[in-house]
Simulated assay, not measured.
Amino acid sequence: MRNSAKRGTGTILTAALVSLALLLAGCEAGGPAPSPPGSSATPGPSEPTLSAPANAAASVHFTTQGDIGVKKTSQHVLDTIADLKPQFNLALGDFTYKAGIEQQFCDMVKGKLGENFPYEVLTGNHESDGSDGDIANIVKCLPNKLPGIQGEYGTQWYVDVPETNPLVRFVMVSPGIDFQNQQHLDFSKGSDRWNWTTNAIDGATAAKIPWTVVGMHAPCLSVGKYDCKVGQDFATMLLEKKVDLVLTGHDHIYQRTHQLALGTACPALVPNELSPNCITDSDSSMAKGAGTVFVTVGVGGESLYDVNNNDSEAGYFTTWSGGNRDPAFGTLDVTATADQLSARLVPAKGYTFTDAFTIARY
C-alpha cells in the first residue's frame, strides 16, 4: 500500500496492519455470503433459498427424484433433500398415488423443505389422467418458484438457471404417459410438442448455455419393468441434440447409462437390444459433448421394483439398484458449474447404495 506523505515508521506500520486485518476479515473463507435479492437474511435450516449466481465461477445445485408417495420412506427422502440444502428440487412425477390427498402431499413437502422452497413439479402418469391424483391440484399447492419459466408448468416447461448468465437449461416434458381418456400428448416427430422441445434444446445451444438437462417421467431404456414409453424417435432425438443429461422416474429403480451417442455405426437408439457402438464412454468420468447420460431416479419413496440383471438393454447401463439388488430410496444430488456437471445418488436413512459421475469440459 503506497502513501505519498512522509510519516514515521511506526505510523505507517500500524496503518498497514489495520488495512491488512480488514482485508482478511472481508475475504475470510467460509464467511457469510450476501443474501440473494428478495431472500431472507437468515433462512431456517430446513428452508433452502434459491441463489442466483451471475458469473461463470458460480454453481447451480439441485436435487431430483420421482415416484414419491406419502409414506415414511417418502419423508426420509425429503429429509435427505433438506440436509443437502439444494437451491431447488425437480420432482419427476407420481406424487400421491391416491386421488384427493394432493394437499396432504404438498403439506408434507412444505413441512420438510419449507413453505418457500422451489419444489418444481412435472406430471407423472398417476396424476396426469386424474385417476390417482390431479396434476392441476399439485401445481396449485406447489406452484413454480423459479423465475423466467416458459411453457405450461407441470406438463411442458423449460427454465434457465440462473435467469441471468444461465449455467443450465432445464427442459421438462411429458411424452409417453396417459392423460384424460387414455390419450397421450402428441410428442411424435414433427408435432407441435416435438418442435417445442427441439426448439428449447436448440435455444440453449444457441445461447451458449453450458449444460442442457431434459426431465421426463418415463424412460426409454430400462432394466426395470417398463419399455420405451417415450418412443424411439424421441429418445434418438435427445442423442442427436447431444443433451447432456436426461432425468426420468416411472420405473421404481435407480439406473444410470453409459454415455451414449449417435454415429455412423449407431444411427438410432433401438430399444430392447444392445448396440455397443452407441456407447462412447463407459466409466464415471465423461467429457462434455461426447454423448448423453440417462438416469432413472424412481426411488423417491413410494416403493421399489425388481431389476433384471439379464435384460437385453443391461449393457447400456453402468449401474442399477432395485428391490432385489442393492435396494435404496434416495435422491440424485447434482451440481453444475461452467466447466463440470457432477452428480451422486444420496441414499435416504437406512440405505447404503450410492453412485457418482461427472461430465466435464476438457
Score class of each variant (00 low, 15 high):
352 T>P: 06
182 Q>T: 06
186 D>I: 08
64 T>A: 13
281 D>M: 04
17 L>F: 12
176 G>W: 06
32 P>W: 08
212 T>I: 10
309 N>M: 13
19 S>V: 11
166 P>H: 00
141 C>R: 11
342 S>L: 04
296 T>F: 01
79 D>R: 10
227 D>P: 01
140 K>H: 13
318 T>H: 14
232 Q>G: 01
333 D>V: 05
226 Y>I: 05
31 G>I: 03
9 T>N: 10
320 W>V: 11
168 V>T: 05
125 N>Q: 03
330 G>A: 10
350 G>V: 07
186 D>L: 07
257 T>F: 03
297 V>G: 03
5 A>K: 13
98 K>M: 10
184 H>R: 00
361 R>E: 15
87 Q>V: 00
209 I>F: 06
142 L>N: 07
307 V>K: 07
250 H>W: 09
211 W>E: 02
354 T>K: 14
46 S>L: 13
61 H>V: 04
301 G>E: 07
338 A>P: 02
255 Q>L: 06
125 N>K: 01
217 H>F: 06
14 T>S: 10
289 G>Q: 05
207 A>V: 01
321 S>C: 07
149 I>M: 01
159 V>I: 00
124 G>E: 11
361 R>M: 08
76 H>G: 07
184 H>I: 00
100 G>W: 12
90 L>E: 02
288 K>D: 04
301 G>W: 11
9 T>M: 10
28 E>R: 12
43 P>H: 03
90 L>C: 02
24 L>I: 09
28 E>L: 13
312 S>C: 01
277 N>V: 00
313 E>C: 03
276 P>T: 03
25 A>V: 09
93 G>F: 08
80 T>Y: 10
319 T>A: 15
77 V>I: 11
339 D>Y: 08
37 P>D: 12
204 A>M: 03
269 L>G: 01
84 L>S: 15
255 Q>G: 05
176 G>Q: 05
189 K>H: 12
152 E>S: 15
3 N>R: 14
293 V>M: 02
298 G>P: 04
26 G>C: 07
177 I>K: 03
219 P>T: 13
293 V>F: 03
55 N>K: 04
183 Q>W: 00
232 Q>D: 03
183 Q>V: 05
284 S>R: 13
280 T>K: 15
98 K>W: 03
62 F>C: 02
298 G>Y: 11
